[in-house]
């Protein structure tokens, strides 16, 4: 038996080719612009070495943006996986209304971040927002949600969890359902409790899916842009900036090379993170 003819590489040529040509090639070309004087006004492109990278180390906005980004990515990922898992388990049961409930919980994932951003900026509006109107109705004082760093970050995190916990639920649900039923039947015959079944069968089989959800949530979280941009634009002041809003601000001010440079450094860090995550993933999935 020859592994080379059973799983031939030619089957991957077209998919891999599309990927390299339409994503990796333009991205690489794009990143090389970080070492030039690129902006919309130039007459000729010149190599400028690392000049475009200087800003990053002098600008005092970066620490705030990095903290906000990390906080958002970690908190949303943990909660998305946690709540998603609980929902997936609950909705994998024999509940009569489970189909309807699955749709309800998944629904927000259908909405684009743009739409969710608009919706939550209206809901949490300081003056007429639904949330504050309710708070006042209950005799509490209204909160200036977007007026301070802590509460604004809370709204971002809340809206992201609202938007995409359904997505983690869907993936975990698919993973739960691809576990052969015989495993559970066998365990039941041995008199296993629900907890034992979860710990010894479900969880080990869920590890790859959990890892996938965790990795994509973290990467999405690190790159968070739309929600913040729509709700606060990084304000008040610079208190809610994230790394991606900074990159976008630089681009918006026509500092193309600087923006690309920031993006390059950021991407390198993310790649390093993703690779580290993969090595963890290999270890955690070794039993499969």
């Amino acid at each position: 038996m020859n592994i080379k003819t059973i799983y031939p590489y030619w089957m991957t040529v077209v998919p891999f080719g599309i990927y390299l040509v339409f994503l990796i090639l333009p991205s690489t070309v794009g990143f090389s612009m970080a070492f030039t004087n690129w902006n919309p006004y130039i007459e000729e492109l010149r190599f400028t070495g690392f000049a475009a990278f200087e800003d990053m180390f002098s600008d005092s906005v970066y620490p705030t943006a990095i903290t906000n980004t990390l906080l958002f990515a970690v908190v949303t990922s943990v909660l998305k996986v946690g709540i998603g898992l609980v929902l997936a388990l609950a909705l994998n049961s024999a509940l009569r209304t489970r189909n309807l409930l699955r749709t309800v919980y998944f629904f927000p994932a259908v909405l684009s971040p743009l739409v969710v951003g608009l919706l939550f900026s209206a809901l949490f509006d300081g003056k007429n927002g639904f949330v504050n109107v309710q708070l006042v109705g209950w005799g509490l004082s209204p909160v200036s949600w977007f007026g301070q760093r802590v509460s604004a970050n809370f709204v971002f995190i809340f809206s992201e969890i609202w938007r995409s916990t359904g997505y983690s639920m869907a993936i975990l649900l698919a993973a739960l359902q691809s576990i052969p039923a015989e495993y559970y039947e066998a365990a039941e015959m041995d008199g296993a409790t629900a907890w034992i079944k979860f710990r010894d069968i479900s969880l080990p089989y869920l590890v790859p899916a959990i890892n996938l959800v965790l990795l994509t949530s973290l990467l999405f979280g690190f790159k968070i842009f739309d929600l913040v941009y729509i709700m606060t634009g990084g304000g008040p002041g610079y208190q809610t900036e994230t790394i991606s809003t900074l990159i976008m601000n630089q681009y918006g001010q026509d500092m193309y090379a600087q923006s690309t440079a920031t993006n390059l450094v950021f991407s390198v860090v993310l790649v390093a993170f993703a690779l580290m995550f993969q090595s963890y993933q290999k270890r955690s999935e070794a039993h499969l």
Binding site: A122, G126, G147
Partner: peptide, 14 residues
């Protein structure tokens, strides 16, 4: 006192 949460959307009402 709470001008930080004033949005452009709310100006017409204000």
């Amino acid at each position: 006192t709470d001008f930080a949460s004033n949005s452009w959307d709310g100006q017409a009402q204000a």
